[in-house]
Amino acid sequence: MKKLFISFLIILLSQFSSGQVSGNVNYQNQYSEQKTININFPSQDGIMITVKGLANVKADSYTAIFSLTQIGKTTKEVNELINQRISQSLTEIKLKKDVVTFVDMISFVPVYEYEVEKKVFSRKTYNEVPIGFELKKNIHIKYSDPNQLNDFISILSNHEIYDLVRVDYVSNTLESIKKEMMNKAKLLIQEKTKNYEVILGETFTNAEKRITDDFIVNLPVEMYKSYEAYNNSYLNLKKTANVNQSNKSTTLYYQPVFNKEFDFIINPTILEPVIQVQYEIKIFINREKKQIPKTDKQFILITPNGDLKNLVVDTAKQKL
Results as ranks from 00 to 15, higher is better:
297 K>N: 05
40 N>V: 10
183 N>R: 12
109 V>L: 12
243 V>E: 09
19 G>L: 02
201 G>L: 11
126 Y>F: 05
121 F>L: 09
261 E>A: 06
127 N>I: 15
41 F>W: 03
266 I>L: 15
244 N>V: 14
56 N>H: 01
105 M>V: 11
311 L>N: 04
131 I>Y: 05
190 Q>E: 10
84 Q>L: 13
290 K>G: 14
319 K>L: 07
312 V>Y: 01
153 I>M: 14
196 Y>P: 09
251 T>G: 02
256 P>A: 02
259 N>D: 15
134 E>P: 00
140 H>M: 08
308 L>W: 08
29 N>D: 12
103 V>W: 06
264 F>N: 07
113 E>D: 14
295 T>D: 13
8 F>D: 00
39 I>G: 04
313 V>C: 07
43 S>R: 07
18 S>V: 06
28 Q>A: 04
228 E>R: 12
96 K>S: 11
10 I>A: 06
277 V>R: 00
208 E>V: 09
156 L>A: 04
4 L>H: 03
96 K>C: 08
225 K>G: 06
173 T>Y: 06
316 A>Y: 09
101 T>N: 05
318 Q>F: 10
35 K>E: 05
103 V>H: 05
94 K>L: 13
1 M>R: 07
132 G>E: 03
171 S>A: 15
222 E>K: 14
158 N>E: 14
207 A>W: 01
221 V>N: 09
269 T>E: 15
123 R>V: 03
100 V>D: 12
303 T>N: 13
210 R>S: 14
42 P>H: 03
71 I>R: 02
80 E>L: 11
